[in-house]
């Protein structure tokens, strides 16, 4: 029973990490159809932002809270820069975008190595996030609880923007029918740029959160990029709620398989489940119904 609860916690926590890493991608890949391999490096940029801020402000708690908005800003600005210089020229050419952004990701990794050095750097966790909380009979690490809340806040914030704000309505309009949106006077250029800013910014937030759990180094992003794409593909392109369900589903599956087998086998089993699932439902859990002819 104890094991069941602790694995439940592990699975939900893993799900929240996957969700944070994938949420931005659900926007740029899911909504805009851009395959951005450099998304992982935006996550890395968020992690290094947390590191730099901690160099300036020694208090781990304050610097973490400050790093969240600044990580969003750093990731977002890098995203806008990438969109404006390269991706903009390659809409509707997914394979070219894939290769170009992969190149960008390699360049960014090397840049991080040159700026911060090849060894991992240490971002200290604030004292109120080390250790954990005993909930009933199981132990929940505080850092993981924090990430879960951060992921929930990010989803809530993103949904709020997409559902209620004019910007969100424009984004949804462009996703559903780009030509029609243009005809009614929406600037698709500006909308694309803003969507990319938010999506990449969310990667930055994910990076800040991940410093609590893993290593901060130049190759941080590569550990998450494949999983992030999996979440978006399984969740269904064009839907945030699909990504949420897929992230927690995959997290729980991984935790369950890993407990009964080993980490390597669990990874294989999760892949098999995904392949089978996509055979049955190639469009993912949810998909946007659209009358667009384009």
């Amino acid at each position: 029973m104890q094991a069941l609860y602790s694995q439940l916690v592990a699975g939900i926590s893993l799900g929240s990490i996957l969700l944070l890493a994938a949420l931005g991608l659900a926007l740029t890949f899911g909504q805009m159809g851009v395959i951005n391999m450099a998304h992982g490096e935006f996550i890395m940029a968020g992690s290094y932002t947390a590191f730099v801020i901690q160099k300036v402000i020694a208090d781990a708690g304050i610097s973490l809270l400050l790093a969240i908005p600044l990580g969003f800003l750093v990731g977002g600005l890098m995203g806008v820069l990438l969109e404006a210089t390269l991706i903009r020229r390659m809409y509707h050419r997914p394979l070219d975008t894939l290769l170009v952004t992969w190149g960008v990701s390699l360049i960014l990794q090397q840049a991080a190595r040159d700026i911060f050095g090849a060894p991992n750097v240490d971002v200290r966790a604030p004292s109120w996030l080390s250790g954990g909380i005993d909930v009933g009979i199981t132990h929940v690490p505080a850092a993981r609880l924090f990430i879960l809340m951060l992921a929930a806040a990010a989803v809530a914030g993103l949904s709020l923007v997409l559902k209620t704000m004019p910007l969100g309505r424009r984004i949804r309009g462009v996703v559903q029918n780009r030509d029609l949106a243009e005809t009614v006077g929406i600037s698709t250029r500006n909308t694309d740029r803003l969507t990319f800013f938010i999506g990449s910014g969310l990667a930055g937030i994910a990076g800040v959160a991940l410093t609590l759990l893993g290593s901060t180094g130049p190759t941080l992003g590569t550990s998450y990029i494949v999983d992030a794409f999996l979440v978006v593909v399984v969740g269904g392109i064009g839907q945030i709620k699909g990504a949420v369900i897929a992230a927690f589903g995959l997290g729980l599956l991984q935790a369950t398989f890993e407990y009964s087998t080993t980490a390597s086998i669990a990874k294989v089993m999760v892949f098999v489940v995904i392949v089978v699932f996509l055979q049955i439902r190639p469009q993912g859990i949810f998909s946007v119904r659209t009358r667009s002819l384009a």
């Binding site: 592990a10 759990l213 893993g214 550990s223 991984q254 935790a255 407990y259 980490a263 390597s264 990874k267």
Partner: peptide, 11 residues
């Protein structure tokens, strides 16, 4: 055993 580069050790 965890695959090289594995990042989630909760389980």
């Amino acid at each position: 055993y965890a695959p090289l580069g594995y990042t989630d050790f909760s389980t």
